[in-house]
Design a protein around this nucleic acid. Structure first.
Length: 346
DNA sequence: AAAATTTGACCTCA
DNA sequence: TGAGGTCAAATTTT
């Protein structure tokens, strides 16, 4: 717990620092000649999120400080609590018991595979139905008609199951009440390296560096006596369209270490004891690499049927921040969402 | 040709 | 015994 405390403190400091940097960025943006409403809005959102992140962290730290982590139901940043076991009660225990099939070489480890659910809203007519691209590569291995459900349930496992032994699976089922919503039940954490996400991270870092240099160039031009040499770019717009889930208000040199600490797996799809370094080095966002506006994601407490309450219509990102080993705090986080108010870690 | 999907069979558990 | 999860051969897609 000592290590955890240190990491928490670092995380809070990082988040607050990030907020400060965002504020500085906003200050720059407010310059009369460079003011862009969109940019300011975005920065403001990020600033608010940064402080909310910090507050949430502090809140969770208070709870973690005197409780057994394995017993704490953490709250993801969409405000949906689920246990660190990723196992919302009854459904999971049922599932787990079924998984103890000796002939299928299922290790006992699998018994505790975390499970959590999301609801993914897909805009009709976009053709994205069924894709539900969450950034990972999945292989469909089955489909079943479920009693009482209007739509079949599809079963997917990680494409890298055979090559990398990744045990992550998910079930996807269209909601009866709203066909535009898919309920996705994830099980198990990815231990694989997903090239797409890796590439995305690299792209983002490059993008951020380009934006930085772009901004720098513009600032230089502002003080220049040659205002006609204005450089135009739509890069940020176009890139945001394809991948708007992140903004990188922090120092570009720190992007990798702060947002993507490769070795720490700061974002996990499931609770990982902070003291046990998970096998994967993959950052674990819901990256939404397909057009983000196509769907919204609802994280939910799987065990409670009435708990699918919060629908984020657009997972437009707020702020990513470094959590290092605190991946259990941000279980399957979609950073694109705004944090809900009252921090609630119980 | 390789990878992905489909789909009926099979397995386990309640 | 039936529901739900998985397997694996057949088929389709890339």
């Amino acid at each position: 717990m000592e290590k955890l405390g240190t990491l928490d403190r670092k995380s809070v400091i990082s988040v607050l620092t990030q907020g400060k940097e965002l504020a500085n960025e906003l200050k720059k943006q407010l310059h009369p000649t460079t003011t862009s409403k969109e940019a300011c809005d975005s920065l403001l959102e990020n600033i608010v999120s940064s402080y909310e992140n910090a507050l949430r962290l502090l809140n969770c730290m208070a709870l973690l400080g005197n409780a057994d982590p394995s017993q704490i139901a953490v709250t993801n940043f969409l405000g949906s609590p689920y246990s660190v076991e990723g196992s919302p009660r009854s459904e999971v225990s049922e599932h787990n018991s079924k998984d103890q099939q000796p002939h299928r070489h299922v290790s006992k480890k699998r018994k505790t595979l975390p499970r959590w659910s999301e609801q993914v809203r897909v805009c009709s007519g976009t053709g994205s139905e069924g894709q539900l691209d969450d950034g990972y590569n999945w292989r469909k291995y089955g489909q079943k008609v479920i009693l009482g459900a209007n739509h079949p349930r599809a079963y997917y496992r990680c494409t890298h199951r055979n090559t990398q032994g990744c045990l992550a699976t998910k079930q996807v089922q269209r909601a009866d009440e709203d066909p535009s919503i898919f309920e996705v039940i994830y099980s198990g954490k990815h231990s694989c390296i997903q090239e797409r996400l890796k590439q995305k991270k690299e792209d983002l870092i490059i993008e951020h560096k380009e934006e930085e240099s772009q901004r720098h160039s513009q600032q230089m031009l502002m003080v220049s006596t040659e205002p006609t040499l204005k450089i135009e770019t739509q890069e940020s717009d176009t890139k945001e369209g394809s991948f708007p889930s992140f903004s990188f208000p922090i120092d570009s040199e720190n992007v990798e270490t702060q947002l993507f600490p490769e070795s720490t797996n700061f974002i996990g799809t499931s609770y990982t004891p902070p003291f046990l370094s998970p096998a994967t080095s993959e950052s674990y966002f819901s990256l939404s690499p397909c057009p983000v506006n196509d769907f919204g994601i609802v994280h939910s407490l799987q065990s409670s049927e009435s708990d699918f309450a919060e629908i984020i219509s657009n997972p437009t990102p707020a702020t990513s921040f470094p959590f290092e080993d605190l991946d259990f705090l941000i279980d399957q986080v979609d950073f694109g969402s705004h944090f809900l108010d009252a921090p609630d870690c119980s």
